[in-house]
């Protein structure tokens, strides 16, 4: 069976790849495009470690097929910093020690950025519910929530 030829945009760059029908976007990102920043925690849409945005929409890349990336704009953790300058969320995660092992971190950062794009001034409860699809087994979430609230504060310029 021949592979599909897919043309897409990854973190602002035009990208082409070949993939099998059954390959997920997560597998394509990691195995074909060597963008291993997006993590697999479950492969079944339950942990959020594989979070990316497709045309600005937050999705679990393990639940999207590679072929669905055709003509879309994909954003992954590798595109979050502007060159050497970290996104405020990335900086706040470091300052607040919001990661221990860090394997949930790329997905949580992507999800948090999607939240702040919709709601620049979320309450603690809104952050907790927005991130309820992103499992972290290490931190107990305290410092993640604090980092997101602090980044939101900074990004509002208040």
């Amino acid at each position: 069976m021949s592979k599909h030829h897919v043309t897409t945009t990854l973190n602002g760059n035009a990208v082409e790849f070949l993939c099998d029908t059954q390959q997920t976007l997560l597998e394509v990102l990691r195995d074909e495009l060597h963008h291993t920043g997006t993590k697999e925690g479950c492969g079944t849409g339950d942990c959020g470690a594989c979070s990316v945005t497709v045309d600005g929409r937050l999705v679990c890349s393990c639940l999207v097929l590679g072929v669905e990336a055709q003509g879309k704009s994909i954003q992954t953790i590798e595109g979050m910093a502007q060159g050497t300058s970290l996104h405020p969320l990335q900086r706040k995660f470091l300052e607040h020690a919001a990661l221990q092992c860090g394997v949930c971190t790329p997905g949580i950062l992507i999800a948090a950025r999607a939240l702040l794009a919709r709601n620049p001034d979320p309450s603690e409860e809104e952050v907790r519910f927005w991130l309820a699809g992103n499992l972290c087994r290490c931190t107990g979430y305290n410092k993640i929530i604090e980092a997101v609230l602090d980044a939101a504060h900074e990004m509002r310029g208040s």
């Binding site: 990691r30 060597h34 963008h35 291993t36 920043g37 997006t38 993590k39 697999e40 992954t76 953790i77 590798e78 979050m80 910093a81 970290l86 990335q90 995660f93 470091l94 300052e95 020690a97 990661l99 860090g102 394997v103 971190t105 790329p106 950062l109």
Partner: peptide, 22 residues
């Protein structure tokens, strides 16, 4: 509580975990 030395690769997706080697 200084920032950890291995922090930046972990927030930029560049840190390599067990599944990330090829």
């Amino acid at each position: 509580s200084p920032v950890r030395p291995d922090g930046t690769p972990k927030v930029t997706g560049l840190a390599r975990y067990g599944a990330d080697f090829a």
